[in-house]
Design a binder for these strands. Structure first.
Lengths: 333, 333
DNA sequence: AGCCCGTTCTACATCGTTGTAGAACGAGCG
DNA sequence: CGCTCGTTCTACAACGATGTAGAACGGGCT
């Protein structure tokens, strides 16, 4: 049986509450008592029981981070940023995966899945593509990246549209005229990140005076490197002409580079490629990947900080923060 | 205030214990009662309080996964495998990072850091390089990857040595004679993965009748793509001749490919590169990365399953499982 | 009828912690 | 001396769930 606060109290010859006070840095305590208790804690190797404390305080000291897949570099790196920032607030992070399934995303928001936590950070991509309203929220919640129709929860989002437009502009300025949108989805009304990036792509084309061509709108399922590779291979096989690719994330762009290299095409000689996210691997691709950086660190940090404020009782209206972006110039475009 | 089991009982007009029985699928209950309670649970949107249940049962329903960095693809993908397998057992996973710091690794093992959980899976790399004995274990623990001197905890490890030797053999069979060990550490007595891979490298060299050369032993700090790139750039700058690289993980190997491409060297024409891990990105590098696959999925799955057995009371002697490896042939070597 | 037994339900104690209320103490004041 | 006040400590209740013990019931047996 684990050693409890009562064991420590007995060992130190003091009351249970005094031990509790010691553990919680209660200021009105003699140094002698503090020392006695410290010695007993040490001697018995006492550790507080988080369940009991959680029950008493109504807090668990943990938050959930819900993402589609951890294996995607962008989400893994986001998760690392979130874990580090949460630790800064003394919180632990339980990580859950949805596979971009809207049902699962909903279940996490409603608290039907996942561990009990004090708050939730979710990067919803499945739900963002459907247009239902989410009303059931079990915990203080911060949504990251994509926006969904949900009441009273904070958003930390990125400049999907402006960044995508800038990426297209970047390619157009370098003389590219047939630019693929890699990751383009079928139409939805919901303002998902994917949809906004597509809007930005269209806007960028228009700004540059380029014609839109439906065959250049290439969907890619889950935005993994393998999907990007397959999609571009298929495009080449189909004989579609193109001289630029905007990958809607870096994994897709890296997949495109892989497909182009395989087909014997030069990047950026024959085709320029630009990505989105600036994942850690981007500088090391061949060629190094030019990309739109939506400030992942800022996103993660802001999301955690906002969530902590909510957990601590902040009850103002729902907030919306948009992180800045900038184009990181490398050699692929 | 959240709705409790007592609220449900009152609403349904039954005792608290009956609600508890319902929630725990107690078999001796009339269907009428079951239905009444189900309706009340639904009506009040009742969710069990994990802290209270945890306090009563002495279980939290969560395990910790402790890794050096989540941003490294290998650990991210391992984490995904662990989360998926844990979910299969109804467990949640809290992820912690150590930055490979032995002090932090120790603190997690001793339960001085991290949330309260039912068990711990750790990929220790800092501790594996020191040779102290670890005796304090707070939870049932499974160590993954590297072995450390710890009493009574299960290991799930991989064929570090044999795989590294096979990788060297693979390059040697293709006529490579000056083979770099990328990720070689300074000597330690502790049988860390890094050390075992180096031993395997040496053995492979010997088997192939090749001479060892100290300038081909290249350390790389944290095994990230950037470290691999830097190390190989420095090697080229120093004028060291080599025609093969064994990356001690895939990120390092990918960094090597990046450095070689940057220097205008052809892979595998001028230099063959082989990695270790078979991360998801390996097939999509230019050229696709040949690598030693230590069966990451098996590792993760076995670790979780063994931990679950321990949590459920299995008390046999410490076990040691070694996952098989095989070389995945692609184009980089 | 009287008994046992399985089913169905309830009351109560308990897990380990922290908040509340208040006791005991000495110092400072009139 | 008697009072208040701040400090230091203690006893007890409470958080929300589950295990134990046992009550009440009806059916089947002798």
């Amino acid at each position: 049986m684990a050693v409890t606060i009562a064991d420590v109290a007995r060992h130190a010859g003091v009351s249970i509450k005094s031990v509790s006070n010691y553990l919680n840095d209660y200021p009105f305590m003699s140094d002698a008592m503090r020392a006695r208790i410290a010695a007993s804690v040490e001697a018995l190797d006492y550790k507080v029981n988080a369940s009991a404390r959680g029950l008493r305080l109504g807090r668990t000291g943990a938050i959930s981070l819900v993402v589609p897949e951890l294996a995607q570099p962008y989400f893994a790196q986001l998760a690392e940023d979130v874990v580090v920032r949460a630790e800064h607030h003394g919180l632990h992070v339980s990580i859950e995966m949805t596979g971009a399934d809207p049902q699962r995303e909903l279940a996490y928001l409603a608290g039907d899945r996942g561990p009990q936590v004090d708050g939730l950070i979710m990067h919803a991509v499945g739900l963002a593509r459907t247009s239902g309203e989410v009303t059931e929220l079990r915990y203080p919640t911060v949504l990251i990246g994509d926006e969904i129709a949900a009441e009273g929860c904070d958003f930390v989002t990125m400049a999907h549209e402006a960044a995508a437009a800038a990426a297209v502009g970047y390619l157009a300025a370098r003389g590219r005229t047939r630019i693929v949108a890699l990751g383009a989805e079928r139409e939805t009304d919901a303002p998902s990140g994917a949809r906004l990036r597509l809007d930005g792509y269209r806007g960028g084309l228009e700004d540059a005076g380029l014609a839109a061509a439906p065959e250049l709108l290439v969907p890619a399922g889950l935005w993994r490197i393998g999907s990007g590779r397959q999609a571009i291979e298929a495009l080449i096989d189909a004989g579609v002409e193109f001289d630029g690719v905007v990958g809607f994330n870096d994994s897709l762009a890296l997949g495109a580079i892989s497909a182009l290299a395989h087909a014997g095409l030069d990047v950026p000689g024959d085709v320029s490629v630009i990505g989105f996210d600036d994942i850690d691997e981007a500088p090391f691709a061949s060629p190094p990947l030019t990309t739109a950086d939506p400030s992942r660190h800022v996103l993660a940090q802001t999301a955690v900080d906002m969530l902590v404020e909510r957990i601590e009782g902040e009850s103002g209206p729902a907030r919306r923060v948009e992180a800045p972006f900038h184009i990181v110039e490398r050699a692929s475009a």
